[in-house]
Design a protein around this nucleic acid. Structure first.
Lengths: 229, 229
DNA sequence: AATTATTTGTGCGTATGTATC
DNA sequence: GGATACATACGCACAAATAAT
């Protein structure tokens, strides 16, 4: 067979990284590259499309393909399924249910999820442990409409994180990390000092029809968020 | 014309999200779907390949295509080019060079970049501002071998971030965020209190042949890292 | 403002490659 | 080894976007 699109991809990437194709410069069009390299235009298209998705190239019909000026490369991160995160560290995962109750959501939470003020939801607080040491403290609100089973599921046996992954519909969500001083409650559960800097992950997820859950996850001090380019 | 691959993609995603195709279940093969939906197999392939890249499906030759059990969805983040980050907030970007000097790297830095102990590098410290308020403090080491021009470039006119994006080769890198207490120096430059929780981004980049740069970027208090799913 | 030419985007049918059950 | 399902190369045609006129 002829060249694979991966071959074309590698060759083009080499030319970009070696600056044979300068940032901002127009590269030959697909037809020409296909002729030069000895493959079909569809193969070149596949390779260049991949490079564009990776952020190396910018493509526009009629305008042609340019090497990206500022490589808007994207970092990717696996969305944390906490068990996997802990097991990837070679540690034993466990979790502890602190409490669960169905009650009125505070206004800022119902607002954030786009639910009417005064909506009831299931409020779950739990602790995730790695080798029996506190790893993260979770404060979560779950919409009863979107996930009716939540009130009766055995959250002492399966973590809210995992139960929801398996049982809740999901279509989109938001993720936001910040650095804050540990609150009194967070410090107590995480076994650290009040005011110590900790990473907080705030996450909301929405199903196809309704908001599903809002979560605040506070990591124990020293947590690192690694991203892969 | 027939259906587009986006149509097939949307239809399949709907079936996954509605659990018509259950997590873990095998879905019909490409040929069958093509026949049912009235399009070419290549079109189905394009759609299912996209869904697999997005983490909804798992595909294996001969074994077929399954709905992912734990949707290992990935969050993506644009790698921060600080000017763009600030301008996206509707603020004016500027930067201030604090100092620059070519000197021996501390051992932990040369180790981290895989350079021999006692290597010289260009050490640059600078401040990025949004609407003339401190946004982030940068402490950076640049490998003179990989980027010889660094010593003579006008870092008071163009920020190290931007100069390197335009002038340094790049092939891969690491990114790591953490929450720490602001050091004395960081607090002084960022105009905050010693010990306040701040986000720190540590980043290393490597070119095709040699390490390029190691950077520690300390954001002003209150910085949020948003990721998109 | 409308038209044209160019370039990428994509669908189709076919053929073959390749991993893996 | 054989059968199966995905992976993908090819050549063609046409669609869509848009720069240039």
């Amino acid at each position: 067979m002829g060249l694979s699109w991966q071959d074309i991809h590698a060759d083009a990437l080499r030319r970009i990284q070696s600056r044979e194709w300068q940032p901002g410069a127009l590269i030959p069009n697909e037809e020409e590259l296909a002729k030069d390299l000895g493959c079909a235009r569809a193969t070149v298209n596949r390779a260049l499309r991949a490079l564009a998705e990776e952020g190396w190239l910018e493509r526009r019909r009629k305008a042609g393909t340019r090497v990206a000026l500022s490589p808007k490369r994207r970092a990717q991160m696996a969305i944390p399924v906490i068990r996997q995160e802990i097991e990837a560290l070679g540690k034993t995962f466990s979790h502890r249910l602190i409490d669960r109750v169905t009650t009125l959501m505070p206004a800022f939470q119902s607002d954030a999820l786009g639910l009417p003020a005064g909506t009831s939801a299931h409020h779950v607080r739990s602790l995730y442990l790695a080798d029996n040491l506190a790893f993260a403290y979770e404060d979560r609100w779950v919409n009863l409409i979107a996930v009716p089973g939540i009130e009766t599921c055995p959250l002492d046996q399966i973590s809210p994180n995992e139960w929801l992954v398996q049982n809740a519909p999901f279509s989109r969500g938001t993720l936001e990390y910040s650095a804050v001083a540990a609150t009194d409650e967070e410090a107590r559960h995480l076994g650290c000092t009040l005011g110590v800097p900790v990473m907080v992950l705030e996450r909301q997820t929405f199903g196809p029809d309704a908001p599903v859950t809002a979560m605040r996850l506070t990591f124990a001090p020293g947590h690192h968020l690694k991203l892969v380019i």
